[in-house]
């Protein structure tokens, strides 16, 4: 079974690599099989790791507890399990997603979507403000306090000044309410230079990432597949 698995994995790997020559039926077969399998796996995992533990089990425990309470066999544990019955409300709201399947009732999916979006927006406002605005601004200014206290090396001082200049100029570049002419234009040009360095660094790192993916697959073909033959 293990050897068969390696051969199938190798065959499908080669099917996908065949796209490098040109689009062909082997590639298209593997591509579509992959989509089907990965969606299927996501459904399986979401049901077993999402629906069942978060919704079904607490609800069924609640129903069982209610039956015990009604037959006067209730214990403190069953009283606690009764709270699972309240999960019927979010489950009901979640089930509204099925309204997507009926054109007349599609509007009902707005209810769960509105709750999820409101929750996300509400969580984002204070936390993004703190983590990404205040902390990042603080991080830019802190080195100047250390500079004032005389605890920074020359290299660190130059670095702190460059970061501040770069940050201001990058922000100026993104500030479209003022025409980018004169001093604003110059600052914006410096901002572009910093952005280009940032994108260049990202490209350089992305090359490493993509190459890593290829090395991993070639390693599989040579070590696991060919290694099992020779």
């Amino acid at each position: 079974m293990e050897v068969l698995g390696i051969w199938i994995a190798a065959f499908l790997t080669l099917c996908i690599f065949s796209f490098l020559y040109r689009d062909n039926p082997f590639y298209r077969f593997a591509e579509h099989l992959f989509i089907g399998l990965s969606v299927g796996y996501s459904i399986v995992v979401t049901i077993h790791q999402g629906f069942i533990p978060l919704a079904w089990e607490p609800l069924s425990e609640g129903v069982n507890a209610l039956q015990s309470e009604l037959t006067s066999e209730g214990t403190p544990e069953t009283k606690e399990a009764l709270s699972g019955l309240f999960k019927i409300i979010p489950i009901g709201i979640g089930l509204l997603f099925f309204a997507r399947l009926s054109p007349r009732h599609t509007w009902l999916i707005r209810y769960p979507i509105a709750i999820l979006i409101g929750f996300t927006a509400g969580a984002a406002i204070p936390n993004v403000l703190q983590a990404s605005i205040f902390e990042q601004t603080y991080g830019t200014l802190t080195p100047f306090a250390a500079m004032h206290a005389g605890s920074l090396s020359t290299g660190d001082i130059v670095g702190a000044i460059l970061i501040t200049i770069g940050l201001i100029c990058t922000l100026v570049y993104f500030f479209f309410s003022v025409e980018h002419q004169g001093p604003v234009g110059w600052l914006s040009k410096v901002g572009i230079a910093f952005l280009m360095i940032g994108f260049g660094a990202a490209f350089g790192n992305t090359v490493m990432g993509r190459v890593a993916l290829l090395i991993h697959r070639v390693g599989f073909l040579i070590n696991d597949w060919l290694g099992s033959i020779f």
Partner: peptide, 13 residues
Amino acid sequence: GVIIAQMYPYLQT
């Protein structure tokens, strides 16, 4: 590799 560059501001803070 793709997201390395955007981690540096968080490391500094």
